[in-house]
């Protein structure tokens, strides 16, 4: 099967987006930005899923993307509620300020 855009190109793009998201998680201090970076990593994984689903002509890849999106929606709702609760207590969304649990 010959695709006009090879699957490898989509995988490389997916990796670029994933690594950018991972750097966002590691380098940014704002909890909301960190959360957005996590969403971008999930999205990059979804892109790889869909690319492989086309490569193998298997629908399971797209079905898993559907599940990942559902879980991401639930995760965002809970995560943002946590951020709101923390902000109410500490008046900040800086994750470096949250170190009550350090040993």
């Amino acid at each position: 099967m010959n695709f006009s855009v090879p699957t490898e190109a989509f995988i490389v793009l997916s990796m670029v987006l994933f690594v950018l998201g991972a750097m966002g998680v590691m380098l940014r201090k704002n909890a909301i930005i960190v959360f957005m970076s996590v969403e971008m990593m999930l999205n990059a994984a979804n892109l790889a899923f869909v690319a492989f689903a086309r490569q193998w002509m298997h629908l399971e890849g797209q079905v898993f993307v559907f599940f990942v999106m559902t879980v991401a929606a639930a995760e965002v709702a809970v995560g943002l509620a946590l951020i709101v609760a923390i902000f109410r207590n500490r008046n900040s969304t800086n994750i470096d300020a949250l170190h009550q649990m350090e040993g």
Partner: peptide
């Protein structure tokens, strides 16, 4: 990325 999904034969996604 949504447009890329359209290119990847995944219009629903």
């Amino acid at each position: 990325v949504a447009v890329l999904y359209l290119m990847l034969e995944a219009p629903f996604i």
